[in-house]
Design a protein around this nucleic acid. Structure first.
Length: 431
RNA sequence: GUGGUUUUAGCUCAGUCGGUUAGAGCGCCGCUCUGUGGAAGCGGAGGUCGGGGGUUCAAAUCCCCUAAGCCACCCCA
């Protein structure tokens, strides 16, 4: 058996490949990133790109040492004789905030809207919608804590999936308040659950010490019974005045813009630097977990990374999951288009001539040519398989007359044109 | 990390009471068709039966190990 790709990775293949599904169509990926680019850059976002590997410390501080991602899902990068101090990035935010701090982007007009897309790496076991190398589109806004920024961020995330043609998506919106609020809530949960420790599932016993809020979205039936029985109050009840006002403003803007959302008290974020707005984007067709992506405000992150205080908010969605959702909804993606012109010579001595003509056409249109002399039948067959619109033949007669026999592969229409007219042909096609 | 399930040609799959050179359809290449594609007919190439080990006179088929795919738990995108 020849060498195979590593577990949990995918090849993104050209259209027409066997075994092709939507989520590995290279052109489908590009469709998503191009759509995101269009939507986000219309809103003033600028493209940024950061390394695929970063200092291990950045990832640990940026993602959180208590998370599964850091505890057991990191790909470590080794150099020769090196101890492995680098990590393949598991998400995009930490690297972007690091780049913002390191490169003095604070002096750009604030707030600064950035977007990127690219591969992320997590050493998890594989299932539907979950890979070890997956891809995200990522949007971050740095330098403002205004509720309008939050609302716009949520709205843009929805805009992207809407522009892609998805219908069956919904936003779960929540707020985790400010650090004091969350501290109070966790203390409340600890007090509430400790007397009933024995009734919690094993997972939730651990959650209670590490991150009590996680118990709220436990799938264990016993935990859910206990939650109902204890009448657990939601995080939203614990929001301080400022956080509550902020959350109210975000909701108000979204309603004014007709962005549908459900307030979901179970949206939680465990890490200290998360503040206030947190949300997830869901869809029914992406496997056991329905999240296409999520976002949140992280005003404490820049400081956590050793920089100054920079409020920030961002979101990311998984491109593979988005493609699964598009497939589930039967949204058609743009079909690949072949060359506008395909040129073939009928005898060896005219091959260079046909190639030169095609090269000239490539200045303005998509044009391909045959590398060897072809019989007319083979030439048309080849042209058809490549999806060409026009197939042009050059035999001895055409070469002598300076003409080209063109055939429209869809309509069958045929005509002889002067090669000098090729420029007009190209010009027309640009319209 | 755990569990279920799958793995035979480029693709989709047949093929177990273990038995000579492992099959089909589609695709690919060629010919019929030396200036006209999509059709049809004929022919051809292509397989260490995921890998390794074992049982047996004999293994795609039975046993063990292992890898990968799919799905689920956990968690996340």
């Amino acid at each position: 058996m020849a060498i195979q790709r590593p577990k949990g990775t995918q090849d993104h293949l050209p259209d027409g490949s066997p075994k092709l599904s939507t989520d590995i169509r290279a052109s489908a990926f590009r469709h998503v990133t191009e759509t995101a680019q269009r939507v986000l850059e219309r809103a003033g976002a600028q493209f940024i790109s950061t390394p695929l590997f970063e200092e291990a410390d950045l990832v640990k501080r940026g993602v959180g040492g208590s998370t599964d991602i850091v505890r057991k899902e990191m790909f470590t990068v080794y150099y020769f004789g090196d101890h492995g101090g680098f990590i393949l990035r598991p998400e995009g935010t930490a690297g972007i905030v690091r780049a913002y701090l390191q490169n003095g982007l604070k002096q750009l007009p604030a707030p600064l809207k950035l977007w990127t897309h690219g591969p992320m790496f997590r050493a998890e076991n594989v299932q539907k919608g979950r890979l070890r190398q997956f891809h995200q589109v990522d949007y971050e806004v740095l330098g403002s804590a205004d509720a309008l920024v939050d609302a716009e961020a949520v709205a843009l995330m929805v805009d992207v999936v809407r522009e892609l043609g998805l219908k069956n998506v919904w936003v779960k919106l929540g707020s985790i308040g400010d650090p004091d609020d969350r501290e109070a809530y966790n203390a409340y949960l600890l007090d509430l659950f400790t007397p009933h420790l024995e009734r919690l599932s094993d997972d939730s016993k651990e959650r209670l010490t590490r991150n009590p809020m996680r118990i709220l979205d436990s799938k264990s039936a016993e935990d859910q019974h206990l939650l109902t029985e204890l009448k657990v109050r939601p995080m939203l009840d614990f929001l301080g005045t400022e956080a509550a006002t902020h959350f109210g403003q975000v909701q108000g803007y979204l309603k004014a813009w007709n962005i549908d959302f459900d307030v979901d008290p179970s949206i939680v974020r465990g890490l200290d630097y998360y503040r206030r707005t947190a949300w997830e984007l869901h869809h029914g067709g992406v496997g056991a977990k329905s999240a296409l992506g999520g976002g949140g405000r992280y005003d404490g992150l820049a400081e956590q990374l050793g920089g100054s205080v920079v409020p920030g908010i961002g979101w990311a969605f998984g491109i593979e999951r988005l493609l699964l959702a598009l497939e589930a909804e039967g949204v058609s993606l743009p079909e690949p288009r072949g060359p506008l012109l395909y040129l073939a010579a009928l005898d060896e001595e005219n091959v260079p001539y046909a190639a030169t003509l095609a090269r000239k056409a490539q200045a303005g249109i998509r044009a391909e040519f045959a590398y060897r002399a072809m019989k007319p039948g083979s030439a048309f067959k080849d042209a058809e398989r490549r999806g060409a619109v026009w197939a042009g033949l050059i035999g001895s007669e055409e070469a002598a007359n300076g003409t080209l026999s063109l055939k429209n592969m869809q309509t069958g229409e045929q005509k002889v044109v002067e090669t000098a007219e090729l420029d007009d042909f190209i010009a027309l096609s640009r319209l």
